[in-house]
């Protein structure tokens, strides 16, 4: 059991590290958005599950409320990613990909 917990903790931390590395290394905002929204969310999920396993292992009952934070993060991460990319499109940030042709039907009020 200890092995599983240790594995989850290290994997989670590695994913968080890689996600934040993407934040520093990549060249434009839209590509930078991918690192934190995916890798970091999975990383924190892995760490939270490790915590749930650890406390269930330690105490008499099982401890599951970490699952709640995990679910919450998995629901909110895409919402904030969507909003951030929307804000970036609104401000017409520099993009490596050819930016989308925004016709009049695409303009948001």
């Amino acid at each position: 059991m200890d092995l599983l917990i240790a594995f989850l903790i290290v994997t989670g931390a590695a994913f968080m590290f890689i996600g934040s590395l993407g934040l520093v290394r990549l060249k434009d905002f839209y590509t930078r958005l991918h690192g934190p929204t995916k890798a970091t969310t999975l990383g924190v999920g892995a760490i939270l599950i490790a915590s749930a396993t650890h406390f269930s292992n330690q105490q008499a009952g099982i401890s599951v409320h970490e699952i709640l934070v995990t679910i919450f993060l998995f629901i909110t991460a895409p919402v904030s990613a969507h909003l951030m990319s929307k804000a970036a499109l609104h401000l017409k940030l520099h993009s490596l990909a050819p930016p989308p042709v925004i016709g009049k039907d695409d303009r948001h009020s």
Partner: peptide
């Protein structure tokens, strides 16, 4: 939301 969480894609905007 699903698109945001899966293979290297982020949904950016929904047309009106």
């Amino acid at each position: 939301n699903t698109i945001c969480l899966t293979p290297g894609t982020v949904s950016a905007e929904l047309s009106p």
